Simulated scan of single mutants.
Amino acid sequence: MFSITAKRISKNKVAILAAIFIALIFLTAVLAPFIAPYDPYQINVYKVLEPPSVEHIFGTDELGRDVFSRIVYGARVSLKVGFIAMGIAIVIGTILGAIAGYYGGFIDTLIMRTVDVMLAFPTLFLILATVAVLEPSVYIIMVVIGLTGWMDVARLVRAEVLSIKEREFILAARAIGAGSGRIIFKHIIPNAIYPVIVAATFSVGGAILIESGLSFLGLGIQPPEPSWGGILSVGKDYITVAWWMSFFPGIAIFLTVLSFNLLGEALRDAFDPKHWAED
């Protein structure tokens, strides 16, 4: 199956470009100290609001800090939030979805009604309310986004488990005396991993977008820590005199989220058995 999936993805040029861009952003975040030409926190009152130039390719901000350097370091924050929040959501959603689908009955009803209740609340407003009560920090934001993003994963995993649990290898595992925990974690979850991978890809982009929105509203990463949403928030106050402060972080957010979404779409098509006959 993996060979078929890899073959299908390799034929999708848009997915390849998206994966390359994601890899570049990831390397930029990892190698930020070597890529950024200036200290992202260094204030220079003699270079306030300078337009893009050879010396400062993305210009400078209202405190004379290099915008390119701040965007490079901001990639660290965005990817950290995206991947850790995704990890929290995927772990919770996968475990609860697998338990609901495997046991059924009252447990299934309880978990699915909890999902319905969670989905009844607008996610962004729920996050805003939680972050407003707690002291905003990168760790709080990651946990809150993760704890409010597991519901769709649980639904996907549950639907997959309902199909898998009646297959022959699961019946065979029960026949030889395997316990429910062993069956769920060793046999069912590994075979329900494909929709989880797709959901994880979309979740990273969604988490980055939420973090950027929170930072834009002043409830996310707090200054002077560089974050794409924070840079964009400050830039809006200077949009008429320093367009670069809004343009470049906005493009970074747009391209990163778009790349994760395009890669997620490609993975969803690649994992769909309906398309395998085409190959």
Rank of each mutant, 00 (worst) to 15 (best):
L31Y: 04
A120N: 07
V241R: 14
V91Q: 08
R113M: 08
T94R: 11
K165P: 09
Y238R: 02
P223W: 12
G250W: 09
P40M: 11
T148H: 12
T114M: 15
G179R: 03
N191G: 11
H56G: 09
Y194L: 14
A132R: 13
L17I: 15
F83S: 01
I35A: 10
L156V: 12
F21Y: 15
W243C: 02
G213D: 08
P249H: 07
A75V: 14
W276K: 15
V161F: 03
I145P: 06
R155E: 04
K186L: 05
T240P: 00
F68N: 00
E166W: 04
S259A: 15
I231V: 11
I111M: 05
F83H: 01
E168F: 10
T130D: 07
R182S: 13
W244P: 00
I170H: 02
Q42M: 15
A98N: 07
V115M: 01
V131Q: 14
M112V: 09
F254V: 13
T123R: 13
G206E: 03
L214V: 06
V48G: 06
H187D: 05
L126R: 04
A252V: 07
P33D: 05
F271W: 03
T123Y: 02
S227G: 10
T256D: 00
E55S: 13
E211W: 01
I188T: 06
I189V: 13
D152A: 08
A120S: 14
E225G: 01
I107A: 13
H275S: 13
F2I: 15
P33S: 09
E225N: 11
T256I: 09
P40Q: 07
V234F: 11
V161K: 00
P190W: 08
S69H: 04
G206Q: 01
S233Q: 10
E166N: 13
V204F: 07
G64W: 04
S78F: 02
G87A: 15
T201F: 05
H187E: 06
S233H: 08
S233G: 08
F185A: 06
Y38T: 10
G181D: 08
F260M: 08
D272G: 02
I35Q: 14
I111D: 03
V72E: 00
A178H: 07
A98I: 08
N12W: 06
G101Q: 03
A98L: 03
S163G: 15
V241D: 08
V117F: 03
G205T: 11
G101W: 01
P273K: 01
